[in-house]
Design a binder for these strands. Structure first.
Ligand code: FES
Ligand code: FES
Lengths: 144, 144
DNA sequence: TTTAATTCGGATAAATTTATCCTTTATTAA
DNA sequence: TTAATAAAGGATAAATTTATCCGAATTAAA
């Protein structure tokens, strides 16, 4: 469904949000450990998240990544997915035609559009804050 | 969503079904042209479909691929997707944890499961015949 | 002012997916 | 029986994704 990069990106963002709720800034090293992802690759993904204003980064000692409380509400998963995987998940044809186009649809178009808009709605309505709070109370996990 | 191999596989299967409705057996060459896919790669995918009893193949002159009328109804997209992409789309965790597990769920689990079962239901309920008939009457397309 | 900690950015490597090529096998028809 | 046609299968190449490494830039604290 999502690329590995995107999966790591979402997990990382949720972890940063969780720690930011406690006012803690976290390093790539800590993030990679806590979400069980390859560190250097995770660093690259965090750069993308930073460039897209999804998380904030601070260099130097005591530096690291954080997310403002307000951003936790405004940043939806759709924004992260778009930043990392692009919009092919939103505009791509399920059967691989150049683009999805209702005027010259593939045989799966109608059914695929249903599923896809279901997914899109879910991503657009899901905030980082929402995901972080489940973690906070120990109901959900970022690694296993 | 699906791999390229899977996209080609579905398109190929639908095309074979369409032609089999007319009693025509089709070659890899024709299939690749009609669905606009790389021929040799498509041949590989057709081998998988054949091994999984999704389509039938006949060697030699006048040979090619075909699908029995009954199979067009019983073969659902879910079978094709499983044959080519495996079942990661059905059992995988949306955020990339080892497997999806409700006992130790990732933060997105509940919402992801909704979307996924929506997708699964769609795939399980969609037959090749259904997709081929839309093509037949010129409402849908396998290339563009 | 120096040192150390941290992200940033570029280069490169490994793994996987996508794609091609060529030989073998089966089968039909001449 | 031979020649031609088509799928099967194996080897390999190209492209993309995933992952690692290392030096540069920034910044806080000693
Ligand atoms: S054209 Fe294929 S999904 Fe819309
Ligand atoms: S555990 Fe992540 S989707 Fe179920």
């Amino acid at each position: 469904m999502f690329s590995k990069a995107c999966e790591y990106g979402i997990r990382a963002a949720v972890y940063i949000a969780l720690q930011s709720l406690d006012g803690r800034r976290v390093s790539v090293n800590e993030i990679a450990e806590e979400i069980d992802s390859p560190m250097a690759f995770t660093a690259k993904i965090l750069q993308q998240l930073t460039k897209n204003n999804i998380v904030d980064s601070v260099k130097g000692p005591t530096g690291g990544f954080e997310i403002e409380r307000e951003a936790m509400d405004t940043v939806k998963l759709s924004k992260i997915v778009k930043a990392i995987d692009g919009d092919k998940i939103y505009v791509g044809c399920g059967l691989g035609l150049k683009e999805c186009n209702a005027d010259k649809p593939c045989p799966l178009h109608d059914k695929f559009v249903d599923v896809r808009s279901n997914l899109r709605t879910m991503l657009q309505n899901t905030s980082l804050y929402e995901l972080a709070t489940g973690l906070e109370v120990g109901l959900t996990y970022l690694k296993r």
